[in-house]
């Protein structure tokens, strides 16, 4: 999921030694597989929510890569977010098949509703493979179909509190 305009992007605090140890352990554990960098970064995001800038030198050292090599990979892929996620995440598909069913209206409505929110972040995604039942999106990672603005509001009613 990629963040855009309305999403908050608080600067992460410096990583703690505990986190560095955890990241090192993840990297060491996966360093033996072929092409280990992507599996390691996925595991870091899975465990810690995002890739901290301070994680980069740790991973680079374990894999004997330059920090630039690791950072280049982190920044290339949308999944390797570099800031902590908000409490709730909306990711709406804006690709052609969902556009054909009104995805732009849903996206505009969500972006407007949570503009400036620190609790809910609205992101875009390009195809969730649910193209016959659009507009599609994920709410905290769970796939939903036919997301009209009203249905999205109903599904996220509790978040407004």
């Amino acid at each position: 999921m990629r963040q855009r305009g309305p999403s908050p992007a608080p600067a992460p605090a410096p990583a703690d030694p505990e986190r560095a140890a955890s990241v090192r352990s993840i990297a060491e554990e996966l360093s033996g597989v072929r092409g280990p960098l992507l599996p390691i970064l996925h595991e870091v995001v899975e465990t810690h929510g995002f890739v901290h800038d301070d994680d980069v030198p740790v991973i680079a050292e374990v894999l004997n890569l330059s920090r630039a090599d690791v950072l280049g990979v982190v920044s290339f892929y949308h999944d390797f977010r570099r800031t902590p996620p908000a409490a709730h995440r909306v990711a709406l598909c804006r690709a052609e098949a969902c556009q054909a069913r009104g995805a732009e209206a849903t996206y505009a409505s969500a972006a407007d509703r949570w503009a400036g929110s620190t609790e809910v972040e609205v992101g875009e995604v390009f195809c969730l493979g649910n193209c016959a039942l659009g507009p599609s999106g994920t709410l905290d990672g769970t796939l939903h179909a036919r997301l009209t603005p009203d249905r999205l509001d109903a599904l996220t009613e509790e978040w407004a509190r």
């Binding site: 598909c93 690709a95 052609e96 098949a97 969902c98 390009f126 195809c127 493979g129 649910n130 193209c131 016959a132």
Partner: peptide, 11 residues
Amino acid sequence: DEGDSGTFADR
């Protein structure tokens, strides 16, 4: 890596 919108057969 079935990224094309409108395709979901691989999935």
